[in-house]
Amino acid sequence: MRASETIAMTTGSPDSTRTATELRGVPPRGERLIEMALAGAGLLTVFTTVGILMVLAVESFEFLKQVGITALIFDTQWTPLFADKHFGLWPLLAGTALTSLIAIAVALPLGLLSAIFMSELASERARKILKPALEMLAGVPTIVYGYFALVVVTPLLQRVIPDLGGFNALSAGLVMGIMIMPLIASLTEDALYSVPRSLREAAYALGASKVPTILRVVVPAAMGGISASVILAVSRAVGETMIVAIAAGQEPHLTLDPRVPIETMTAYIVQVSLGDTPAGTLEYRTIFVVGTALFLLTFGMNVLSYRLSRRFRGAT
């Protein structure tokens, strides 16, 4: 549609018709087209999601028909690609939990501190340098982080921890922490920044100095946004693939020892997807089972994040 037509349609018609249509206005056609396009885009994402869920459900169902759910829950080994097959999910869950915990242990304090620094303490100039720098950190492709963990962090750590494996959960988790730190920092900074000025002033007017005001007034008031950001970051860590696939090894072990190689759920999916496992086989279906577990986990966390931010918002 050409611009001139749009204008002709949307600008008012001559006076003769005006009295008749004055109240019974019909939205101009251009507007309806845009609405339809938007609805179409919305539906597309809904269909994609539903499609993914259906594939996950169908393949997982096929898998469960063959293997049964007890194997998933009660076996402690995950060896679907070996001759002696075991389908216990725990080693993969432990791998994911371990790397994510290490990542959060790094990202949470660093992210909170830098958010507090940027929002409350830094001068306008320092903030103008820091925030883009942090956001750049978030823009680094994860494969770069993966190799950084493998070829820089692991050798460095091995000087301190001699029995650290060439592949290990520790350096993958640490680097993943660096990767998700900007997410926490940026969302937390937003949350702190949106705490009304009047609350800070109330604290200052009571004779509070800066640090107590930040820690006991501003941070609690921003708690909803902060906890949502943390859960989002955990969910991101759980779903992170490249770093763990490259630097953590691909050996499912049921362990919480960060020095040894492990395998996360995501890394397992990569491993099988990149291999030559034929479609329709049991091995092939395992990636959908793992995918379903991963989905349920991150979905649960997103719901929690939503609930938390709503509960805290309700309190303010």
Binding site: P196, S198, L199, E201, A202, A203, Y204, A205, L206, G207, V217, P220, A221, M223, A315, T316
Partner: peptide
């Protein structure tokens, strides 16, 4: 100084948490 000279604001601003 502000402990000796208190202040009440235009809009009530109790600490929400």
């Amino acid at each position: 100084l502000r402990r000796r000279v208190g202040m009440v604001f235009q809009k009530p601003n109790p600490f929400p948490s």
